[in-house]
Design a protein around this nucleic acid. Structure first.
Lengths: 241, 241
DNA sequence: GCAAAAGTGTTGTAGGTACACCCATGC
DNA sequence: GCATGGGTGTACCTACAACACTTTTGC
């Protein structure tokens, strides 16, 4: 059976002009040990889904890349500093948007706690953080996008050290441990976890101690050494938790 | 520092109408033990890049999903049966296509050897297979897309049993081993590899023997049990080679 | 001095790696 | 009978899991 070949495959494309828009949407995760894992949402001021909560995002401009579009939208709608951004998935089903056919290229972002502003800081709730376990009803297919992003976060955390992007530049070791417990939603052995992480060598202990919050013995602060990590990665280590 | 909020974030979008097209492109891998890993390319019959080799693909129709578009394009341009398809990545840089701004949602596909037709079968070389190590110059940014796809294939092979999608339904064990050696481009210990694979339990030995090709002792044929795999996956195994 | 969190080592076990000889078939 | 590829087991070693007591601090 030979290959079946159309001689003019592109003829199909000119029959009717394509009328599809391209948007970007960002699932931005934030984390604090007190509030757990949260997602940044905006309240829509225009139809459709006016007044409902949605992911930050919007149409891509003609003269900007997808990454630039996400960064611009985040800046415009929320003004926050992002510490990590990667493409997640493109959603292209037919009825995503009731107005037009719109394809969404979704991105996955992480911010540090110092960029994470709680409810009080926003005026009139135009943008706000929601705990991952207490999300409101969402516009469009944004719940599905969030589900995809959460799976990606959980997966990624176990084979790339992106957890640091959700913590302050310097943090007590227990913060990292709590982060893993929260996001992966399972218990972790403190001693084994520390051995595993420290063995890699890209996490360095500073000589500073935690400024005391609450009771208990204050721990030393640690920081992630990105340079060392990239060196190790080039030499071929594989991070596995 | 409070969140900076634009009151009318969507105003930005109406300043100028978006003029971006959406296409899909497919990186389809095929494998035979004699020829190694190959990619399916088509020879462009229209400008731009007329006469050059490119990935199969084209503009998405208004009334079809992204997956439908990929499958239609593959059918139109090459007529082949695909055994595995997943989304790879979306490429959105500004000058990908010299005509318009076009965003490509790239897909990653695998076909079995019996769908794999060598050069002789195609008329006038409209579509053809190229060994991964002997690719021609490619149109657009298709080389970059292929690089991304190859990394995905290598990664995926080690943590999901998709290798079976590149082999016939029944195959001698050595075929699987050669596939891994070829794609991962490193030596593999025969005995350990077999132990590892068989331990999972989703690969079953049939009582048929390989019809003899060349010299040497013919081996038994094996087949992948998809049902068993999904059951195991649900119960929480993780495939790791 | 008591509650709360940080810091730290050992032992058993499972799984991975390294490694070599015999068997069935075609020519 | 020889060349080619198929089939198979063991021993060592590393890496992970399980597990509990002491130390520092705030109140």
């Amino acid at each position: 059976m030979p290959l079946k070949l159309s001689l003019y495959p592109y003829l199909y494309c000119v029959k009717q002009t394509q009328n599809i828009k391209v948007s970007v949407d960002a699932v931005v995760f934030g984390y604090t040990s007190s509030e757990g894992l949260s997602i940044l949402l905006i309240n829509r001021r225009i139809k459709p889904f006016k007044g409902e909560w949605a992911l930050p995002g919007g149409l891509v401009h003609n003269d900007e890349t997808l990454e630039e579009a996400v960064e611009r939208e985040l800046e415009e709608e929320t003004g926050l500093q992002i510490s990590y951004l990667e493409q997640l998935y493109s959603f292209g089903s037919l009825k995503r948007d009731p107005r037009n056919r719109v394809i969404a290229v979704a991105y996955f972002g992480l911010v540090r706690p110092d960029a994470f502003r709680p409810k009080a800081a926003s005026d009139a709730k135009a943008a706000d953080w929601f705990n991952i376990k207490e999300l409101p009803e969402l516009a469009f297919d944004h719940q599905k996008i969030i589900d995809t992003a959460l799976l990606r976060l959980q997966g990624k955390l176990t084979y790339e050290p992106i957890g640091f992007e959700l913590l302050d530049k310097k943090f007590p070791f227990s913060e990292l441990e709590k982060l893993y417990k929260t996001v992966l939603d399972r218990p972790i052995d403190r001693r084994n976890f520390k051995k595993k992480i420290m063995k890699f060598g890209f996490l360095v202990e500073t000589n500073q101690k935690q400024k005391h919050a609450g009771s208990g013995r204050p721990g030393f602060l640690y920081q992630f050494n990105e340079k060392r990590y990239f060196q190790l990665k080039k030499d071929g280590i594989n991070f596995e938790i």
